[in-house]
Design a protein around this nucleic acid. Sequence first.
DNA 1: ACCTGAACACCGTTCAAGT
DNA 2: ACCTGAACACCGTTCAAGT
Lengths: 236, 236
Amino acid sequence: MSRDRIVAVALEQIDRHGLAALTVREVARQLDVYPTAIYWHVPNRDALLAAVVEQTMSGVTPDLGSATWQDWLRELFVRYRKAVGQHPNVAQLVGAQLVSNANLSPLLIDRILCVLLAAGCPEDHLADMYNVVIAGMVGFVTLEFAPLPTDDSANWAAQLQERVHSIRAMEFPTLARHLPALANKAFIVRWQSGSEVPMESAFNAHVEVTIAGIERMLEAPEPANAASPRRSRGSR
Amino acid sequence: MSRDRIVAVALEQIDRHGLAALTVREVARQLDVYPTAIYWHVPNRDALLAAVVEQTMSGVTPDLGSATWQDWLRELFVRYRKAVGQHPNVAQLVGAQLVSNANLSPLLIDRILCVLLAAGCPEDHLADMYNVVIAGMVGFVTLEFAPLPTDDSANWAAQLQERVHSIRAMEFPTLARHLPALANKAFIVRWQSGSEVPMESAFNAHVEVTIAGIERMLEAPEPANAASPRRSRGSR
DNA sequence: ACCTGAACACCGTTCAAGT
DNA sequence: ACCTGAACACCGTTCAAGT
């Protein structure tokens, strides 16, 4: 019965068996209905995905309280990660496909702009900084929750693990020396997704780096290209 | 004939018609061969994708020259963006699926670690900072090149554009006021991918923010949680 | 308005058989 | 070693028809 049930079942399916397992036909099966019945409520599979993303993202935008802009951004990043963490298999949709944009939330955008302006961002850098904020919010988490190959996940993990541990120490001495700190905890060198092994401390570092970087940028809006401090603000 | 031809054809197909159009059967068709012939050279579709990613990523790692760590990171980010920009539809594979990890490049990891250590990163923060670097390298670009929904892209773009322009100015005044600077140039508020409309200046801002943030972090490795400056370095 | 039922044009992958 | 050929168990989506 009706769209909401369909979206709920779809999200459940994604949570349990991954994005690839989300099939119009499977949703129909779950609802004891002919596959074609779905198409009366939802135009196509992409629209269903967009609806799922929308639901996942509801309530990430913090209120404009009395917090500093730094704290507001921290809160935004943390909330986004928490929301996606509840449905990790949705991460790739938000991060790597524009499907999600179908359900854009003007509220989020408006608030980010307000916060940036209040922080003293000059208007001619506003669009750039907005993009930096969105990328900072989405980028890390998309990577963190990136899914394993669907089929032979156990096998695949074993193989990657094997390959990691057989890295030649004389060819890559620095990597070899720090392998204990990296193995299964760092991008590229891990065989489990963030939904199984969270990357909390790296995420916190990422948040602090991003905020500190924005801080610096707002102080000196001109890119600090140390090599060529040739042209000044007025020259364009 | 043989794996290399297969991978080449696969990459071509992805470039021309997107990731969804990459089909084992289509590759076979292109090579005038039975679909099942592919399976003698490649174990399955995921392996084919991994091979494509590997080819795309070859040569992104800069040499360890005499550059500052800041310039080295800048160079890395720029090279990564350029490499992915040549095959934009591969972006989602690197950014949002661990398939890519199958072909990990120890060289890249080793060099990043070297550069971070040379920059004065303490060993107990090395893993975190490494993750920050990878996320900074991949995150923005993955978003920038995120593909549109496959099927009705023209239609979809028109609809989103319509929705963007019909944002109620009194509900979201800040967004409405800056819409000219954002429309089709900023995440969530655009209807074309970065492969059609590059986001160069935002990317540059992102690079500078990330580097400046890392700089700050290396100066004061303890997360500047302004609210609770309670525990010091020795307390754990 | 909402669903059934049949049909179309596809998939990835396995397995036996050919050369 | 490398490919053919048939087959299996799936897909998303359209369209006519039922109630």
